[in-house]
């Protein structure tokens, strides 16, 4: 599937903008929205480029810069925070040798913080792409990252 094929799946209505952006972003190996793609979207939906950029800029799941193959979304909401999510963040930064919102040099991981992921019963928690990871501690995050690296 390419960008044009995704666009043609939808009626050219503005109400489909967010769905289209999700699909295009998910398709890109670096999980981001390129300028070329955003221009195509604006043209197809017959809306201004500024409108498209306004929407992309508003929602935290969209990115206009390249990201890793795996996007780590660590929950920093009050419940996970009570259970040391800050320490998990520090540990992840140390393992990956990057800061929050950065991508590892090998292009594998991007580390992001997220609001409540609805996994508060099994805190602290995070998502990596579509998978959820719960009951995190210093040891299991090391293993999780290692397994993905070897994948």
């Amino acid at each position: 599937m390419n960008t044009e094929e995704i666009l043609l799946k939808y009626k050219p209505d503005k109400e489909n903008l967010i769905q289209i952006l999700h699909e295009i972003q998910d398709l890109h190996p670096q999980q981001y929205l390129t300028e070329t793609d955003l221009l195509k979207v604006a043209k197809y939906l017959n809306i201004t480029r500024s409108f498209v950029y306004g929407v992309v800029g508003y929602y935290s799941m969209f990115s206009t810069t390249p990201r890793g193959k795996y996007i780590i979304r660590l929950c920093e909401s009050p419940v996970c925070n009570m259970f040391n999510s800050k320490m998990i963040a520090e540990k992840l930064k140390e393992i990956l040798k990057i800061d929050i919102n950065q991508t590892t040099a090998d292009g594998l991981f991007t580390l992001e913080l997220s609001e409540c992921l609805g996994l508060c019963g099994n805190k602290p928690s995070m998502m990596i792409n579509r998978e959820t990871y719960t009951e995190l501690d210093e040891n299991n995050i090391e293993l999780i990252i290692k397994n993905l690296r070897n994948n």
Binding site: D13, E15, I18, L21, V55, Y58, S60, M61, F62, E115
Partner: peptide, 20 residues
């Protein structure tokens, strides 16, 4: 697409219409 505020009913409708 990652906005807590969109859980507010009228904001949700804006988002559903494809807007910020």
């Amino acid at each position: 697409a990652g906005s807590y505020l969109c859980g507010e009913e009228l904001t949700l409708m804006e988002s559903l219409e494809g807007k910020r």
